[in-house]
């Protein structure tokens, strides 16, 4: 009887992301939204992406598979009936690839590249506050901590996930999750896998990394 009770308590504690239990949360709990990659789920707290907040994805240059990493997430956002807003992406978004990935293009909106930085941040904040936008993607290399905090707050109020793509990692960023994608080579997989490092995640003690084949669908 006593044992059963304690296991119930354990379960409750496990599921509460707000409760810090003084141990590494990597791969624990069920609060996250699955990333679609089992290796990555295993090193993220809550076994998946957080429901809301700001996320930073660092790649040395665009095109390292950073969008492939988010495609399962985009798909689930679209299935919820929410919109994906792409704020000034560096290249043209190509619709056939979205269709191939199973993303409804009707729920995708793009803010053009030649928008001023001030307007980009303004629209990003507004979009994060709007509950109908499930995911806001933006390409901004360097943003001051103050701005990041403001975006983080906006994402919290709107229950939205915001993703910032950048080239350089900043150690003191307030974003709850920072990821880095690097090229990797292994004997059996060749160049097929990329190394995804979780530099920081709320609940994780140290940075963890996993080798993932991001182009498994392609």
């Amino acid at each position: 009887m006593h044992d059963a009770g304690s296991s119930d308590i354990d379960e409750l504690i496990q599921d509460n992301p707000a409760l810090w239990r003084g141990c590494d949360m990597a791969g624990q709990g069920t609060t996250g939204r699955s990333t679609g990659f089992t290796q990555l789920d295993a090193i993220l707290p809550g076994r998946g992406w957080p429901e809301k907040g700001l996320m930073e994805v660092v790649t040395p240059h665009w095109g390292m598979g950073e969008l492939q990493l988010l495609i399962p997430l985009m798909r689930s956002v679209v299935e919820q009936g929410k919109w994906i807003l792409w704020i000034s992406p560096p290249y043209l978004l190509y619709a056939p690839a979205l269709v191939q990935a199973g993303i409804n293009t009707e729920q995708v909106l793009v803010v053009k590249l030649d928008t001023s930085c001030k307007d980009v941040l303004w629209s990003m904040e507004k979009a994060l506050q709007t509950e109908n936008c499930g995911l806001v993607l933006a390409w901004q290399n360097w943003l001051p901590t103050k701005v990041l905090r403001r975006l983080q707050l906006a994402a919290d109020t709107g229950d939205t996930l915001g993703v910032l793509f950048k080239h350089h990692d900043s150690e003191h960023s307030p974003s709850p999750i920072r990821l880095k994608i690097e090229d990797s080579y292994s004997e059996n997989a060749g160049f097929n896998e990329s190394e995804v490092t979780v530099i920081k995640a709320r609940g994780n003690f140290r940075s963890l990394s996993a080798n993932i084949n991001l182009y498994q669908q392609a």
Binding site: E106, L109, V111, D119, S123, K126, C133
Partner: peptide
């Protein structure tokens, strides 16, 4: 929200992909 965005960015800055 979209109207607000249009008011700020201008009409032709928001695109749909198809």
């Amino acid at each position: 929200f979209m109207e607000q965005l249009q008011a700020r960015l201008g009409n032709n800055h928001i695109k749909l992909v198809s």
